[in-house]
Each structure stands twice: as C-alpha cells, then as structure tokens.
C-alpha cells in the first residue's frame, strides 16, 4: 500500500544565507531552480536555499508551477566580497555542465561538498586551456604544467602526480593507466631532445584542421589539495574565483594525503603516505 504524502503548502522564508523554499516536489519548479547558477542555489536536504537576488523569480515560479502564492520575505543579507583563504579540499569531482550552462566541480571540504570550482578556474590553474585542443591532451596536461615549465617544475609536478596516482595507494579506477602515463610524460619532458621533438610534433599536430579532438569532460588532474584561493561566500559554500596555490595536504608528521574513489563506493577513501622522496 502506498502512503500518500500530505500536501505541504509552499513557504518562502529567509535565513542568514538566503531564501529558503519549502514545497512539495514539482518537476517543473525543480527544473527552474536548477536553471539558476549553481552557486545561487543549494539543496540542504529538506529545502532549497536560493540567493535573494532571485526572489521575484522564485515567487513567479512557485505560482506558475505550483499554483500557490508565496510572499517574498525581507532579507537582511550579509553581503560579503571576495575573500582569500586556504582550504583543505579532500576530494574534487568531475566538472559537470549545469542546466544554467556553467560547468563546475564540487569539492569536499569541512564535511560537505562546500567548495565550487568553475571549470574555467581549474583549467586555468592546471594550464589546460579549452581552446587549445592539441595541448589539452598533451603530456604537459598529464603533469599539469605549462609548456614553458623548466626541468625543476617538471620534476616537482611529476613527484606530486606520481604520489597522488600511485596504484598502491590510489583507488581510482584508472589509477594504473594514469600512473603509467605520468611516468611516460616525465620520461619525455625531462629529456631535452625528446621534449624538443615532442614539442615539434605538437606544433605540427596543431596545424591540422579539427585534428580529431573531441571535447571531453574535464576533471581536475589532482583529486585533493591544500588550496589557497580567492572565493565568494555564497549560501554557506565557497565559489572559487581564482586559485593562488595548490599543495599537498600534510599531517603533523609530514605524511601526505591521497584521496581516491573506488568504483561502487559511496564515499572517497583517504590514505596517508610517507613523502620521503622530496
């Protein structure tokens, strides 16, 4: 026997973060809410929290989809400008295009998916521009270094990436494949002659029309990190606008955190490893 849920009248209230909308489920209304920028809406488990600037739109959408009238409350919004801070982000998911058209990845920090990384911000930090398809899949992108990276920067990136992707500690489904690719990238980019030839090959490939590139879902090449960033505080989440630095998360004994998500698991796994190869 199916239980019929009692009708909840729609309500729109305000709290310190924004507007709190409680209604029965309605697909049209949810679609409308999801069309808002991801940093302007948040599902808190029982209600939608929405940025106050969308208040009139929320009232109209409830009327249109639910045939109910809600009153727009007065919001005393704490306006906060850009801030800079250091965040321990334990796991970063895949960038996903939102109904609003933006592509973002969520980061787990402070026991919640509370950090929003726009894809463009991640790409910029990892030097993987979307408008340079040849480079996007290059060995430089594997190590997340710039084309102009010097040998020391390449070595440092290799150490960080190989530590994070070592199949003995990383449980990501493609860890082994990635680890091999990281090693290959280092072999080529740390050898001047091979690197010169590789660069020439990249330059020739870039002259080809279309060059067979298909845009793929972007994923941060590193899953976790101690990230110093500029961000906007929105609906109790942080929307990163610029990454200033990205290092390993270390404990008091100098061990480094490696996080990965095993296929089928409901949460990522944390492993602390000795960082004795510095």
């Amino acid at each position: 026997m199916r239980l019929r849920r009692e009708h909840r009248p729609a309500s729109l209230t305000a709290d310190g973060n924004g507007l709190v909308l409680v209604t029965d489920y309605n697909q049209g209304l949810v679609s409308w809410i999801k069309s808002l920028p991801v940093s302007d809406r948040k599902w808190n488990g029982t209600a939608w929290v929405i940025h106050p600037k969308h208040g009139p739109g929320v009232v109209n959408a409830v009327k249109q989809h639910m045939w109910e009238t809600v009153t727009l409350p007065v919001v005393t919004q704490q306006v906060s400008g850009p801030q800079t801070g250091t965040l321990d982000v334990l796991y970063i998911g895949t960038c996903k295009e939102q109904p609003s058209g933006e592509s973002v990845a969520f980061g787990w920090s402070g026991e919640a998916w509370s950090v929003i990384f726009p894809e463009a911000v991640l790409r910029s930090w990892f030097h993987i521009a979307d408008n340079d398809p040849t480079f996007a899949e290059s060995l430089y992108a594997v190590l997340a270094v710039e084309r102009t990276a010097n040998p020391e920067q390449i070595k440092k990136a290799y150490r960080m990436m190989s530590r994070q992707w070592h199949p003995d500690v990383c449980a990501e489904p493609d860890a082994n494949e990635k680890f091999i690719r990281i090693g290959k990238a280092y072999d080529v980019l740390s050898d001047t002659n091979q690197r010169d030839k590789y660069d020439a090959g990249l330059a020739l490939s870039a002259t080809m029309e279309g060059n067979g590139y298909k845009r793929v879902t972007f994923r941060s090449p590193v899953r976790c990190g101690r990230i110093t960033a500029e961000y906007l505080q929105k609906l109790s989440r942080k929307e990163v606008t610029k990454i200033v630095s990205w290092g390993d998360i270390k404990d008091g004994t100098g061990r480094v955190l490696v996080t990965s998500w095993r296929m089928g698991d409901k949460h990522f796994t944390e492993r602390w490893i000795e960082a004795n190869n510095e």
């Binding site: 040849t134 290059s138 080529v188 030839k197 590789y198 090959g201 990249l202 020739l204 490939s205």
Partner: peptide, 10 residues
C-alpha cells in the same frame, strides 16, 4: 600514442 608522441621517433 598521440601524433606528437609518435613524432619523437621521427
């Protein structure tokens, strides 16, 4: 391998 990597052997 990518074309660029293949070019290393050229």
């Amino acid at each position: 391998k990518s074309l660029a990597e293949t070019f290393i052997g050229c």
